[in-house]
Amino acid sequence: MAVKEDLDIFNQHSQGKSKLKFEMRSYQDNQQLNWFKNRVAKEQRHAKALEESLGIVSEKLRKTTEENCIVRHRTKMQHEENKEEMYLQEQFFKDQIKIIHESRDAKEESFERLQQEERDKVKQSYVNPSNGEEKKYSGN
């Protein structure tokens, strides 16, 4: 292929035929222009593909963010419900324990009273023997 110097020498010796110089440059310019057009078209396709991908990924991110927000809200609500239920269960069991303790205390008091009454009866029987027992001992 001819270089620029070769064309200059050729154009010096052939008068009026400088058209070859123009045509050669024009051909190179067309080749470069086509190459740049192809490159631009390729870059535009790439940019469009990236834009579409970005749109898809952005939509997925938006949906995922919404779903996460809903899950967080439901989890918080469930936590509050569980917390309330646990509180109510705790109160119920505390009340039941209180009732059991009060019942036990009442039974213990009743038992203590009965024991004390029995002790008192036994003491009275030693201090004041009953008439029936006196007759037994005095009759013999």
Rank of each mutant, 00 (worst) to 15 (best):
Y126Q: 13
K60T: 01
L88H: 14
N30A: 09
A47Y: 00
F22N: 11
I100F: 04
N38M: 01
L50D: 02
R72L: 13
L7I: 00
K83I: 04
K63D: 08
E112D: 12
E118H: 07
D120W: 06
Q115P: 07
E102N: 09
K121C: 05
S125D: 12
Y87W: 13
V40K: 01
A49W: 02
G16W: 01
K42Q: 10
E59F: 00
S14D: 13
Q32V: 05
E52Y: 02
Y126D: 15
R25Q: 15
I100S: 06
A41M: 02
E66T: 10
E102K: 05
L20P: 04
N38Y: 00
Y27F: 14
Q31I: 07
A49L: 02
S110D: 04
L20E: 10
F36K: 03
L88W: 07
N30W: 09
E118F: 02
N11D: 04
M24H: 15
H73G: 14
R113F: 12
K107L: 04
F111M: 12
L7W: 00
N38R: 01
S26K: 08
R25T: 14
Q96I: 01
S18L: 09
N82P: 13
T64E: 12
S53W: 06
N38D: 01
Y126E: 15
E109I: 08
Q91W: 02
N34T: 09
F10H: 00
E52W: 04
K21N: 03
D6A: 00
S14V: 11
K37A: 02
Y27L: 15
S53E: 07
S103W: 05
Q28E: 15
H79L: 15
E67D: 10
L114A: 12
D105H: 06
L20M: 06
R119W: 13
E102Y: 05
I97A: 09
Y87T: 14
N11S: 11
E90D: 12
E90V: 07
L114D: 11
K63C: 02
R45Q: 02
K19Q: 10
E80A: 11
D120N: 07
R39W: 00
K19C: 09
I97T: 09
Q12R: 10
G16M: 01
I70T: 10
S14F: 13
H79W: 15
V71Q: 11
A106H: 04
D29M: 10
F92L: 15
K37I: 04
D29F: 08
K17D: 07
E117D: 10
F92D: 15
E90G: 14
V71W: 12
R45M: 01
A47L: 00
Q124L: 08
K94H: 08
T65K: 04
N68V: 07
K107H: 01
N82K: 12
S103H: 11
K63L: 06
H79V: 14
E102G: 00
R72K: 10
E84P: 05
K83N: 06
N30P: 06
E112Q: 15
D105F: 06
E59H: 03
F22P: 06
T75A: 13
H73N: 13
C69L: 11
N82D: 13
M77H: 15
D8R: 14
Q89C: 09
Q91I: 06
E109L: 04
E108V: 05
A41E: 07
H13N: 09
Q124I: 08
L33M: 09
R45K: 08
A49Y: 03
